[in-house]
Nucleic acid binder design. Structure first.
Lengths: 224, 224
DNA sequence: CCAAAAGTGTTCAGCCTACACCCATGC
DNA sequence: GCATGGGTGTAGGCTGAACACTTTTGG
């Protein structure tokens, strides 16, 4: 069946993710450079059009894989951008996501049939973006800060076994503020997302840290 | 420009609202009965396809007005439903909303060119719905309970001047639990959304209540 | 004066913040 | 033994929950 009513013909869905990672102690976001019009040569967030046989999550995964090679990331939907003119030519509605990926697993494909380049940009040094992606990026960062204490989303940024100071650094970077060591430990243990392990790793300066891991089973109570 | 790639041709956007009100001390949701296939004769939530020159909010407002006559309601977007088969025939993605309306202003159009009927249904007595609207309704109720303490959304359900017990009854109905009178008063006043007025209204049994109103200016701090 | 409805205050528990000293290791 | 980095506890303020009596009106 084809759409006949011209009032809502030729609409499409964009699934768009602000993919974040932590690199050299700073938050970066992955941008891709467009190969075609519109916005040819401009940097944009990762994403693209959802196919008819996909739900939006699946379309996003496929687009990310096609345009960056990334397959193993955590993502969460946070918004809808639907101004009629947000995309020139076709009417596209964007379903937007925050995603996190571990830089160590992040082997980025630089060029594809649709993209000229892909690069991590420090979030304090973002170029002008195509479409309405600057607005989407702003909202994504805001959302990330809001959910970071209510989910185990940071899991992907850490090795299986990690220490409190390692975990704390990630929160400090994402939230962009200093946190008290004692309070942080109490809070995180209280949240019930992580548990101590008997993993050990000596050979470093200073008192050896305890190691923790994210619990395998996250109960309802944990993730609000 | 027309879509050529068949993989994402003929997609469309549904804006769909679970419109709630409080009637005889119970929560009701507005359902409309479809006049055409698919789901001809079935009850569904209010909504329809977004036009090309509208953002989703605007499309929702238009659809609600066309199909129910309602113009003055509070609504908030909460989700996206995108399973490929959620709508038979055309591939439609649903952007979903919670809406609230004051029953006293709710003069419902019963039949339109697209609908056979429109009626309020007690949420404990919902018929089988078309599309995936049962799932949407469940999620909408869940969302409503979550935001009710963080926004002035209940404003539309109350007269300009209202008493604490009146306000409390609405919260108790929406949250479906008893709340302690003293704690409720402290909490609501603390939230800073409402303020006392010198409105008076005697002639009722019992000690005369104080009247309150929602503040005209809601500051950033108030709505988290 | 009595029935009905509204107003009010205290205590306890849990959570957040601020803050300083001790401990185990490598060199 | 000393430098480095990690671990730990306590006190004050805020928030949410539990709980019972007094006040004002209409009839």
């Amino acid at each position: 069946m084809n759409v006949k009513n011209v009032k809502y013909k030729n609409q499409g869905i964009h699934a768009i993710a602000a993919i974040f990672t932590i690199e050299n102690g700073e938050i970066s976001v992955l941008l891709i450079k467009r190969k075609r019009e519109p916005f040819k040569g401009k940097w944009i967030l990762t994403g693209g059009a959802v196919y008819n046989d996909e739900n939006v999550d699946k379309g996003l995964k496929r687009e990310i894989k096609e345009k960056t090679g990334l397959t193993d990331l955590y993502f969460e939907q946070f918004g809808v951008f639907s101004e009629p003119k947000r995309s020139p030519m076709l009417r596209m509605i964007a379903i937007t996501y925050v995603a996190l990926v571990d830089i160590k697993n992040a082997n980025i494909i630089k060029e594809t049939s649709n993209t000229l380049n892909a690069e991590w940009f420090n979030i304090n040094d973002i170029p002008k973006l195509g479409y309405d992606h600057e607005e989407i990026l702003d909202k994504a960062l805001e959302y990330l800060k809001k959910i970071i204490l209510k989910s185990d989303i940071v899991k992907v940024l850490l090795p299986k076994h990690f220490t409190m100071p390692e975990l704390q650094k990630i929160y400090e970077m994402l939230l962009n503020k200093k946190i008290d060591r004692r309070n942080f430990r109490k809070k995180l243990l209280n949240l019930g997302l992580i548990e101590e392990t008997n993993y050990e790793n000596l050979g470093r300066v200073g008192k050896p840290p305890k190691f923790y891991k994210f619990k395998d089973v996250i109960t309802e109570k944990n993730i609000l």
